[in-house]
Amino acid sequence: MTWMARLAAGLSITCAVVVLAISCSLKDSLGPVAGVEGELQVSGEWPDSIKAAALIVLDDVVLEDAADHLIAFSDPLMPGDTLIPYFVQLRPGRYYLVAAGLTVEPALFLANMEANSADGDIPFVILDDDLSAIATPVLIRKDEVVQVNRTISF
């Protein structure tokens, strides 16, 4: 085998690996996401029973059975703070946004989310008093981020 042939063999193996790498890299890379973002504001005196406030995302506006329709929630706004920018990643679809008060510490809320969801007993209360806003769905399209600001008045 001449050195030219050996060189060609060595290069062929490596080129095959590089081509495989490039094709894989195009497939798995992260890309733009869809969701809803904005600001969650609070005004008035925080009740002691509310440990944090967050925007929750439901796939249907059935408030008495919200746990069964809970899709996601925003990072929480802590007592004493009046505003938090939020982003919730969502798949394309129709959703309802509701301002909720967490009745336990946010860390505890997150730690037990799975168990509470299974029980259908998630420790939050609906804070929104603007029912028309709750009932208005938000339509999310592919790679689209929709702006929604919401204010909670205690």
Partner: peptide, 18 residues
């Protein structure tokens, strides 16, 4: 941070760096 299969909130992917 938790992942959420309902929203696709899971940013873990394999690495392919060239």
């Amino acid at each position: 941070f938790d992942t959420n299969p309902l929203t696709g909130q899971d940013r873990r992917v394999p690495l392919h760096l060239v």
